[in-house]
Amino acid sequence: MKFRAKIVDTACLNHFTRISNMIAKLAKTCTLRISPEKLNFILLDKVANGGVSMWCELEQENFFSEFQMEGISAENNEIYVELVSENLSRALKTTQNARALKIKLTNKHFPCLTVSVELFSVSSSSRIVTHDIPIKVIPRKLWKDLQEPTVPDSDVSIYLPVLKTMKSVVEKMKNISNHLVIEANLNGELNLKIETELVCVTTHFKDLGSPQLVSDSASQGRNVEQMAEVCIDIKKLLQFLAGQQVNPTKALCNIVNNRIVHFDLLLEDVSLQYFIPALS
């Protein structure tokens, strides 16, 4: 089992740092999957903890100038490790003025992900900051629990509004209520609703557009005005929105009536999927 990778391009380095910051906001601990082509940050929460899932995927060649890995065996050429996501984002804090970043799998009394940041320096001697992040290597037999969640057939697919507006609305709603109803239809309307004995608040977004073809939905016999809705934990939604620091290239929301809401984001060349199940 071996892994060693290097980033030298500043833009790639900054982007990778932003991704790790986002992951730290979305998940306390996550699984990092390393395969010859891709890196994945994975969170598949137990139902008891809210059942939120995250699947973040990036193509290694878009980031790394060097990338060598050897999985646990030739036929299972992958590595799964678990780490505290904040440790990685903290280790990458110093990359702002860095020349290069090296990541490798090491064993220093215990398994580590060693992150070395080579800083610019005026003198000829180089300065390197190294973080050893403790990790837990996940054995082969548990891999099956860490596979990409299947996206259920959604009732309504709709593009998300500006995430910043959505975030400030949800932030205020969180002060008032613990859960929120998110509903949308094929007519490009999305509503966020809370209801307590004191107050009812509904925010209406319109003209959002849907990737679903009207002819498609017509064949399914769905009225364009008909709302699909899910009641979810408002904190989980806010966590997802707070994690978004850059405006995504594409942001899609898929709703399966009373079951789950699935957010599908494209951040430059990184894809992020986030699933929040309905409250029972």
């Binding site: 004191l198 107050v199 608040v201 509904t202």
Partner: peptide, 12 residues
Amino acid sequence: EEGGVVTVCKIN
């Protein structure tokens, strides 16, 4: 209303 987004609040 802000930027075409409307919020309706009903406060008891």
